[in-house]
Design a protein around this nucleic acid. Structure first.
Lengths: 243, 243
DNA sequence: CGTAGCTTTGATGTAGGTCAAGAAATGTGG
DNA sequence: CCACATTTCTTGACCTACATCAAAGCTACG
């Protein structure tokens, strides 16, 4: 795969048009590729030596456990996303990480990253953009949990994922492949797994989305947007802002 | 007031022990003091010229409005907190701001802040610590909304505020003054105002907290901690980490 | 080809929402 | 300092969204 086709390059490229030098720098960051089955390893390593990871393949869930055993998933990471970027830029954040699928990730040492920022500031700007986009998503999830019904939450969530996946070439307006179980959806949306099932059924029966056999299919994209009042502005992915 | 007694100095001082030079730098940042009745002004200015504000007096709410008119408060800011720091460090974030009380704030220009970082890196570290603490709070609010009952949410929320206020000298284990209406609490906790009232009554009747006449009184601090499974670790305020 | 995890569906319970209306506090102008 | 207006608080009656419990059918994989 050409580096320009990698999920991260596609994502950053939507914000800053990357030239040859910048793509080469990005490729350098990418070279310490590893394969993990259990992402638990990833976290521990990330915490130990202050490095971050670029997710190249597979899905991951970031979550926090409550003392009573329930958990809340804060976000999922998909190809092109950083893991543990915050712990490099700011201070270590404390949530756990769990792989949803088998994953492949590249380790990025703190120094390499800061070095890359120095040499290609535009790349640095793009990475900061990605970080603040992650934050905006957490805020949007907060609103989802606080003020939307089950159906709206699900619709909003599936649309957000769709937008994110489209950006890295893994989905479009018709749908995308999605490895999440209903139980994982429940932990992300603050619902019970049983209710997630019912919500999905209702959305399907209304002809809005179908989520079956690992595939999300938008049967009525605009209807879904209307139901959830989805406004992708917070994802801020409307073409390059820096030329 | 001595600068060392200002809310911000107290807060940052809990993370990094500040020396004379650093306190002086902080005082410089503080000198463009303004008084606002409506914080709407604050936001607009903040967006226009890329400056942040240090809240010196009063309370503020950051929220997002939904198209259907309901709103979700993401966090409150109290004395010593930054407003719009993110828009200086990263990219402009898009939530709105509303004053809860009359406020006083100091404007901080982007250049002044970055300049202060250069000259006193420890101060810079402290400000980054404050920023990542803000983020950790948003995540904790997410968990509150997703996985806790009304009573747990309220207990957790009141304890978090107590911890934050104590850090800047505006509260202790017995309680604190709190200008929030039940309606504001509802918008922050994802509940209805009516239910907030009932929750507060139940907590009062159980002898845990009393919130009346603008004062939060902890009647049984430990009981409240137990009920909400409150663990202040995410606030990360256990004395200076840097000597 | 059996066992473990996922999905689906029904029955029933409950946390919390909505509507409504009175009481208390707070503010405002004279 | 009072009279009036407005917001905030409080409580009751009723209803809905979602949780919990339980059991059966599906997939998948060692």
């Amino acid at each position: 795969m050409q580096i320009a086709d990698s999920p991260l390059a596609r994502k950053l490229g939507s914000f800053v048009r990357l030239d040859e030098t910048e793509l080469a720098t990005l490729e350098n960051l990418h070279n310490r590729r590893r394969r993990y089955v259990a992402a638990r390893d990833v976290v521990y390593e990330g915490q130990r030596d202050q490095s971050a990871f670029i997710l190249a393949k597979g899905w991951v869930a970031s979550y926090k456990l409550l003392p009573d055993g329930t958990r809340q998933i804060v976000d999922f990471q998909i190809p092109g996303d950083f893991l543990g970027l915050r712990s490099v830029l700011l201070r270590t954040s404390d949530h756990n990480i769990e792989p949803v699928t088998k994953i492949e990730a590249s380790e990025v040492h703190k120094e390499d990253l800061l070095d890359a920022f120095q040499r290609t500031p535009r790349l640095g700007a793009a990475v900061l953009w990605a970080a603040s986009r992650d934050e905006a998503m957490v805020v949007e999830h907060l609103i989802n949990l606080g003020r939307r019904t089950g159906e709206e939450r699900m619709a909003h969530f599936l649309l957000e994922l769709g937008a994110r996946l489209s950006l890295v070439g893994l989905g479009d307006r018709t749908g995308y492949d999605c490895p999440l179980s209903q139980h994982l959806l429940a932990d992300a949306l603050g619902l019970s797994a049983v209710h997630v099932n019912r919500v999905l059924r209702r959305l399907r029966e209304q002809g809005l989305v179908t989520f079956q056999k690992g595939r999300v299919t938008f049967d009525d994209f605009d209807g879904l947007v209307a139901l959830s009042e989805f406004d992708a502005a917070y994802l801020d992915q409307n073409g390059p802002l820096l030329p």
